[in-house]
């Protein structure tokens, strides 16, 4: 048996451990679940060390003597004080440092998700489809505007928004079905092709 085959069999074993949950909860599934969490964490720790700590903390400070970087390193370590009852408040500093970037997200976020989208919603209505999009966008927006009662002619118009959203959710649902099935297909292709070698 080749090494690759053995590796695939190990993969297949753990795949079946997880699938066994479909029948009912069992020790194999429980074992696999905890192993999964453990390996993911160990993997993340090692990669963070080799790909982040070494090139961005160790090398600049120790090898290139950029002593000033000791400050952000200490700042990062303050995260760990979260668990301390007395010094927990110090962990607010690294959080505050990363929260600063919210400043950039205000103008940039307004631009990307609001201004550009609004501009596109206001293009000249040259085709019937553009008209439908225009009406739909306004109706959906008004549907979530609760300061005016949804009654009379206004209520009827706002109701359009509901139908638009139902179609939108339907499309999302149809695509979600597709996505879930695709994931299963991928696993079965692994079992049938990579492990058993039955597809060509």
């Amino acid at each position: 048996m080749s090494f690759e085959m053995m590796s695939n069999l190990v993969g297949a074993f753990f795949t079946l451990c997880i699938f066994s949950f479909l029948y009912k909860d069992n020790p194999f599934y429980q074992m696999a679940e905890q192993l999964l969490v453990g390996i993911s964490l160990g993997y993340g720790l090692v990669l963070t060390y080799t790909r982040v700590f070494i090139p961005y903390v160790y090398q600049p400070i120790i090898l290139k003597h950029q002593w000033v970087l000791i400050f952000p390193a200490i700042l990062g370590m303050l995260y760990l004080l979260r668990f301390s009852r007395k010094l927990g408040w110090l962990s607010r500093y690294p959080i505050a440092f990363s929260m600063m970037a919210v400043g950039a997200s205000v103008p940039m976020g307004i631009h990307a998700t609001i201004l550009v989208q609004m501009r596109q919603a206001m293009v000249p209505i040259e085709t019937f489809n553009l008209f439908l999009i225009f009406i739909g966008t306004i109706a959906v927006l008004l549907y979530f505007f609760f300061s005016k009662a949804h009654t009379g002619v206004y209520g009827k118009f706002v109701d359009f928004g509901k139908w638009y959203m139902m179609i939108g959710f339907g499309a999302s649902f149809g695509l979600t079905v597709m996505a879930r099935i695709s994931l299963l297909i991928g696993r079965i292709q692994f079992l049938v092709n990579d492990v058993l070698g039955l597809l060509k």
Binding site: A112, V116, Q117, R119, Q120, G168, A171, S172, L175, T176, M178, A179, S182, I185
Partner: peptide, 23 residues
Amino acid sequence: AVMAADQYPYLQSGQMIGMLAGL
């Protein structure tokens, strides 16, 4: 594919120039 339907506004505005949706 789960997220694909949500991206159409970006496609129409040109913020995305293309999209591959699921399998």
